[in-house]
Amino acid sequence: MVKDKAAEDRLVIAGREYRSRLLVGTGKYRDYDETRRAVEASGAEIVTVAIRRLDLKAGEHQQLLDILPPDRYTLLPNTAGCYSAEEAVRTLRLARELLDDHTLVKLEVLGDSQTLFPNMPETLKAAETLVKEGFQVMVYCSDDPIQAKMLEDIGCIAIMPLASLIGSGMGILNPWNLRLILDQSKVPVLVDAGVGTASDATLSMELGCAGVLMNTAIAKADNPVLMAEAMKWGVIAGRQAYLAGRMPRRYYDAQPSSPTQGISPLL
């Protein structure tokens, strides 16, 4: 029965079902070929992209969207690099035009270029405007349950607290706060930022997260394609362990795994 539950398990985002609970970014790779191979190896179906000025000096070269066929991937344009609600809203309006009325977006409003910690007042402000304009907002936020609830109340469709600083690879620094957010949220909660290796992804999923979003942990591994696959299995392992329900912890009381009866005594 649990096996069936795992087989039918789907992540639902904005009414669409996904088999993969790993969402990946497309930044920091050596080139678009490596990006494509890593994204493929990750099994991800939702892929983030950034919105930037066309580099006129670069001449005609391959565009990112050429390697991400829209029938295969759901694109998630982000607002990376935005430090105010106004900038973030503008960026996503441009993304909607660029991607032909695409409304599923990742909102992030940064507060500081050193830590890339979110500016939550501006994030809340931007979320309100975007939801009113019909965007489906997945939101990068601090792991503060009060503000996470505010974002959910505004109408964000996914809450995405940081596990640790963006690009830090420090893993989940405060699993207890994540649990508070998970316990209260009626929309999917995804860990966004901070994952360093596969066990971090597994732990996120064991806590009950609906998914994990990462970029640097894959792109800056020595072998990004292999790490992408490791992350795929890490997320699957964590999700299955969560669905299976772990045994209770017994702090002071060992329990033998082998029968205590029928031990043959020394004669």
Binding site: Y29, R52, L64, E97, L98, I166
Partner: peptide, 24 residues
Amino acid sequence: KSQYQVTQLNEHDRLEVIVAVGGG
């Protein structure tokens, strides 16, 4: 996009041309 053909540019217009690039 539907307006590109009919949008006349004027001297000193400020234009921004935006694309999707790799990002997390």
